[in-house]
Design a protein around this nucleic acid. Structure first.
Lengths: 193, 193
DNA sequence: CCGTAATGTTGATGGCGTAAACATAGCGTG
DNA sequence: CACGCTATGTTTACGCCATCAACATTACGG
């Protein structure tokens, strides 16, 4: 299965793989269709047999990013044992994921008119956010949900853009159960014992 | 002063003007050096007499964006009469500015290695943030400052990227004095009567 | 008043996304 | 087993981009 001549075998996956690889060391706007094709050992226009255009390829990469983010958050939540600590942990994991995968994270969120790749109601990350917010704030769930998302997303972006030092202590300080969502108006039905 | 032939007169300003104009209707990555040169009625390479490269041109546009953001925030703060309401108003103004100038806002913050154009310690916006945070949280000023910035920035980005509806009611709900920075650990020396 | 520095121009290079026309190979049906 | 259809690649070409090198024009200070 080394070098089939004409037909590649699984070019689509190879292109996504190549894209993820490039995103480890380069920004999204430095990802060129031709480069990924080169990495896959294929002519530039072969890409069009699997993606209608470059935007679609990037959207596929973005979707992969969202999925990985969700996984990272779930693991963090579980390790923290759910409850308030779990909620904070998902937020911290969000920021750490961004710092560990800057280009992929940016691609996944920035410039939403990738249309497809972006986070939507049935992603793992989104579901966790909603559930936690509801269990904590009841009627005020929407506000808490948006505030929590905004803090994590904003901190991630500001750190990525170098406007705030990317310091783990800062992450814990900013995304903190006590100060960020202190027991909300007597509605806290905590999930941890 | 209509059409000096060879020497343009003030090409640098004309290019920035052209850039700001383009950013009203197009994304930053759709701004081409050649297009701005065309708008200014000048050959593409003339740009290099005023900017070492495209990055520098974009940085100049970014700096203009930061300045305008600061102005918008100051006005909002004054109209709200300072104090807690003023603090919240600067945050809301931050988000509204982003929604009114999406491409310019993104350019100003995104991809910090524009190096120059970005917000730094002596910008009006930054100074206001620091002062408000100190007057509110005293010793905990840094945490409040980062939380406030992160919420505003995150909300702005998420709305720009279409992940949260760009609804003014939502802005007021999320960036809210009562819920976001409730009287902090007895340290609130409010500036309003 | 004249030369030098500041400011523009033309032309070329190599990269990009993508469209059109052509080539190959693998698979399902006879 | 043969054959042709379709999925998958290739080559070539176009127009756009950022940027470099060499040359042209102007403004201004001695």
């Amino acid at each position: 299965m080394t070098e089939r001549n004409y037909h590649h075998g699984d070019l689509r996956s190879a292109l996504i793989e190549a894209g993820l690889d490039t995103l480890k060391t380069a920004d999204a706007d430095a990802v060129s269709l031709r480069e990924l094709a080169r990495k896959a050992g294929v002519s530039a226009t072969a890409v069009y047999r699997h993606f209608p255009d470059k935007k679609a390829l990037l959207a596929a990469l973005a979707a992969e990013g969202i999925a990985r983010l969700g996984t990272a958050q779930r693991i963090a939540s579980e390790q923290a044992g759910g409850g308030g600590a779990g909620f904070a942990a998902t937020g911290q994991a969000y920021v750490r994921f961004a710092l560990d995968n800057p280009a992929l994270f940016r691609l996944a969120f920035t410039h939403g008119d990738h249309a497809e790749g972006s986070m939507s109601g049935d992603d793992e990350a989104w579901r966790m956010l909603r559930d936690y917010a509801e269990s904590f704030a009841g009627a005020d769930a929407q506000r808490l949900q948006l505030q929590a998302w905004a803090v994590a997303h904003g901190l991630a972006m500001l750190m990525l853009d170098g406007l705030i030092p990317a310091d783990d202590r800062l992450i814990k300080s900013v995304i903190d159960q006590q100060t960020l969502f202190p027991v909300q108006s007597g509605n806290n039905n905590d999930a941890s014992p």
